[in-house]
């Protein structure tokens, strides 16, 4: 069934990088270009599940989240979107553009001191994207771009773990850790690194070129467990595969 679907399924493209790296701008340009090419394109944004987002928002406002709760709530949000938005769209053939994906959680939560192995397990079974674009900027550039428009928020600035009162100073410390984690992930998971210090136009042209040349990651080789899990349990999934025998 996966072999048959492989030809018609959509591609999953993830845009990753620190705040202020310009990935949302690039994601919008990329999506517009995909549509101009006649493709159906769907966007999924980080922490946007209509079911879970309100829970996270309230808890962020009162600054009541420990790193573990922060991580687990975002993992629940991710799983809900994966099962109800991402996989159904891919299955019907749409290209899904993820404005932040699993690697955001790995980088941020590892920067908060949580064990990397545990984080990977929380997100299992993992649906590996076909392409990951990583928008690389220095901590200084990220900080300058954020500070130009607004003050970083409490968790965005990592104030829950740095203990620094000044949001921007805390942000600079925290984002340096996040970028270090991202750089390791970029090597391990073979991201396509985009130099996000360059002009918007140059970046966009490079993204198009990479996308046109990129090889997809075949589901039967990469994502059997994630797809089987979804097919066995998700209410909107096609019911043609047997339940995975886990127990």
């Amino acid at each position: 069934m996966l072999q048959r679907r492989e030809a018609s399924r959509g591609l999953l493209v993830a845009f990753e990088g620190p705040d202020g790296s310009g990935k949302s701008t690039q994601r919008k340009l990329f999506k517009t270009w995909l549509k101009s090419e006649g493709r159906e394109a769907v966007t999924t944004k980080w922490n946007s599940s209509p079911l879970i987002k309100p829970l996270v928002k309230v808890r962020k406002q009162v600054r009541a989240l420990s790193p573990e709760e922060f991580c687990l709530l975002h993992a629940a949000d991710f799983r809900h979107r994966l099962e109800t938005e991402v996989l159904p769209a891919l299955w019907r053939g749409a290209t899904v553009v993820a404005d932040r994906y699993l690697f955001t959680a790995l980088a941020r939560d590892a920067a908060r001191g949580l064990p990397f192995d545990w984080l990977l397990h929380i997100y299992e079974p993992i649906l590996w994207p076909d392409i990951v674009f990583y928008f690389a900027v220095s901590p200084e550039t990220s900080g300058m771009r954020i500070a130009a428009t607004r003050e970083p928020k409490y968790y965005e600035a990592g104030q829950d773990i740095t203990g620094i009162d000044d949001p921007l100073a805390s942000y600079t410390t925290f984002i340096s850790r996040v970028i270090r984690e991202y750089e390791s992930l970029a090597i391990v998971f073979q991201f396509i690194t985009i130099d996000a210090e360059r002009s918007i136009d140059e970046q966009h042209r490079e993204i198009r070129e990479h996308f046109q040349q990129a090889q997809r990651r075949p589901w039967p080789d990469w994502n059997v467990e994630a797809i089987a899990d979804w097919l066995a349990r998700a209410p909107d999934a096609p019911r043609a595969m047997p339940r995975a025998a886990h127990v």
Binding site: L72, A76, E83, I122, D229, R233, A234
Partner: peptide, 14 residues
Amino acid sequence: AGPSARTLTLLYAA
């Protein structure tokens, strides 16, 4: 759309 068993488990863990 409601939560799956896996999402519910993550919420219980939270």
